[in-house]
């Protein structure tokens, strides 16, 4: 039996009095790819941000590798080293060059040996074909390059789970492919466990083992990846898929 990485039970989230997530339950196993799909404002991004504590959920439980998280700031800090996250707006540190962006986590947070971390960073950069850019600053890079670096920055911590929050949404169309290919390779070659929020339906169809479809903060359905795109269970999901076609 494959190991369960993350499980969420009865997660609720309020902004003041307004409830934005309702009784969310799901779990993800080692090596699985879970896609969070749904219309804008359905709570996908809020949910994925709750999974590493960037948003605090109001009630519910989170289990990581079978252990229940006591949601103190200290525990979140420890857990975030095992959960990599990549954002829509890349958010590299603009005052640091590429190499230092990648090394900040391993050397300053995880206190790894600098030379060893550097070796690793360079081999990660090799994988994404950006070894020539170690000394470049984020402002000198294209959106696609920045996003690939951001993925490497997260991978440098050796996470057990990766969260991708609309990582291609602000990229030029021709940049999207390179980023998606890296994510796909991570799943296929490294067997990385991933939760992905995306509007790229073709990509989700190719990569997702399972789909969680959200609408208005509720999980409307949880369906096998291949199944969802050909035969979604709910009318709302079918309408959503239809609206994404052009």
């Amino acid at each position: 039996m494959t190991k369960e990485i993350l499980r969420i039970e009865k997660l609720n989230k309020f902004y003041d009095k307004r409830q934005v997530l309702f009784n969310i339950d799901f779990s993800i196993k080692q090596g699985e790819v879970l896609a969070l799909l749904g219309p804008s404002g359905s709570g996908k991004s809020t949910l994925i941000r709750c999974l590493n504590g960037l948003e605090h959920f109001s009630s519910g439980n989170l289990f990581f590798a079978g252990k229940k998280l006591v949601p103190t700031e200290k525990n979140w800090q420890r857990l975030r080293q095992k959960i990599g996250m990549v954002f829509q707006s890349y958010d590299l540190f603009p005052n640091l060059n590429v190499l230092d962006n990648i090394l900040l986590g391993p050397t300053k947070v995880q206190k790894k040996n600098h030379d060893q971390a550097k070796q690793e960073a360079i081999s990660l950069l090799q994988r994404i074909g950006l070894t020539d850019y170690t000394a470049a600053y984020p402002r000198q890079l294209s959106g696609g390059q920045k996003q690939r670096i951001a993925i490497v920055r997260a991978l440098a911590l050796h996470p057990e789970l990766m969260l991708f929050d609309e990582v291609t949404a602000s990229l030029d169309p021709e940049m999207v492919r390179g980023v998606l290919e890296i994510i796909k390779e991570l799943s296929e070659k490294d067997n990385m466990t991933m939760i992905i929020v995306t509007h790229e339906m073709n990509f989700a169809e190719q990569i997702a083992d399972r789909v969680l479809f959200l609408d208005d903060g509720h999980v409307l359905e949880e369906t096998d990846g291949k199944q969802f795109f050909v035969n979604a269970q709910t009318k709302r999901a079918r309408e959503f898929l239809e609206s994404m076609k052009f």
Partner: peptide, 14 residues
Amino acid sequence: APNQIDAGKAIGMN
């Protein structure tokens, strides 16, 4: 930018 703080937190910074 608040995103910068999120990015820092996301790599486990205290």
